[in-house]
Design a protein around this nucleic acid. Structure first.
Lengths: 187, 187
DNA sequence: ATAATGTAAGTAAGTAATCGCTTATTATAA
DNA sequence: TTATAATAAGCGATTACTTACTTACATTAT
């Protein structure tokens, strides 16, 4: 609970204490049980507030979800923005791959929710990855790969698959897997 | 609807016509809207039967889900069983990778449901992949890879990531991506 | 300084609608 | 006849959400 709260509060400087509690409880329950299986009354009880307060601050249940997704989207954007201007192509690949190995454990709930929601909402947030996509295209082109676009898509698939694996059943040999990926790209 | 029905009926020789209709409707709606957002009354209407019939044949809503999952699990098991006894290591890798490129479109709904459910059920079905895992371990060992276990996990992550991508937003350059993967393993 | 006012925060107790599921009854077929 | 397939109607519980109200606090007027 504390983890979630601190995570959320980093991105909500204008929020009431109780608003943060609601967001934290919702994040925790959405990630654990799914959006539809989590009722607003459960969230309210878990946050220690009245149920009506949720609707006062977030309009409806979907508004609460959107508020959480905004936090995740902003977080993702920040991660990508840190690396897309790397000029050296191999360095960019390294950084892109390393991102997934450096996700802090206290953010796992958030990312589990984001990944789970991909399958429930029809609108997949492909636009947040576009800047990274372009940067990767360029890197693979510089490195002389035959089909840079396909290579960019592939590496994003690999990252997605690895993140999924880490979030659902964290393996002990993370470092070996990183080495195996690096090998595939001569890093 | 027809697609779902024919798909289901391949694995349910002892089923009533109405049972198949229920399963088909449930599969379609679970995959489209998610398990919790789909009510038993919606399923009944969509299948053209009374709601009570669902509970007669499948006991409860979860039993209906389990019946669908059984079909998917059996399907997955058959796919893996076809290839795990391949002796030539490179041939095995090829076949394992090709599986994901040969999923027929009429089965997409089923797989979307299976993948979406990974995030909602705490028990991840890792045991169905274990025979394939062992076969891959052996193949990478034969090929002289430094860390066969990590390589097996990685290639399953890649396959998972690619399947996810295909199911959520099917790309046009599938063939280029297959080539890119083959390149990484000298196939 | 303090009383008056305005606004946002917060709640208890509801609402109609829908949920998964059951019961009582009828239709069908071996 | 006997068992199973199928249904209509309704069950209590829960759902997302609303209403009517109180509390807390900052701003303004006197």
């Amino acid at each position: 609970m504390i983890n979630v709260l601190t995570f959320v509060s980093n991105y909500s400087h204008t929020m009431t204490e109780k608003q943060e509690k609601i967001l934290g409880a919702a994040l925790e329950l959405f990630a654990k049980d799914g959006y539809h299986a989590t009722s607003t009354s459960k969230i309210a009880k878990h946050a220690g507030v009245s149920e009506a307060l949720i609707f006062r601050h977030f309009e409806n249940k979907e508004g609460l979800l959107n508020a959480i997704m905004d936090v995740g989207g902003q977080k993702a954007h920040e991660l990508y923005a840190k690396i897309v201007f790397t000029t050296d192509p191999k360095e960019l690949l390294k950084k892109a791959i390393n991102i997934l190995f450096e996700v802090p454990e206290e953010e796992y709930e958030m990312w589990r929710l984001m990944y789970a929601l991909k399958w429930q909402t029809n609108g997949y947030n492909t636009e947040s990855k576009e800047p990274l996509m372009l940067a990767l295209n360029n890197a693979f082109k510089k490195l002389g790969y035959k089909n840079p676009e396909a290579e960019s898509e592939l590496i994003l698939m690999i990252i997605d698959g690895a993140v999924t694996s880490f979030l659902l059943h964290p393996p002990k040999n993370k470092e070996d897997i990183r080495k195996a990926i690096f090998d595939k790209y001569d890093l």
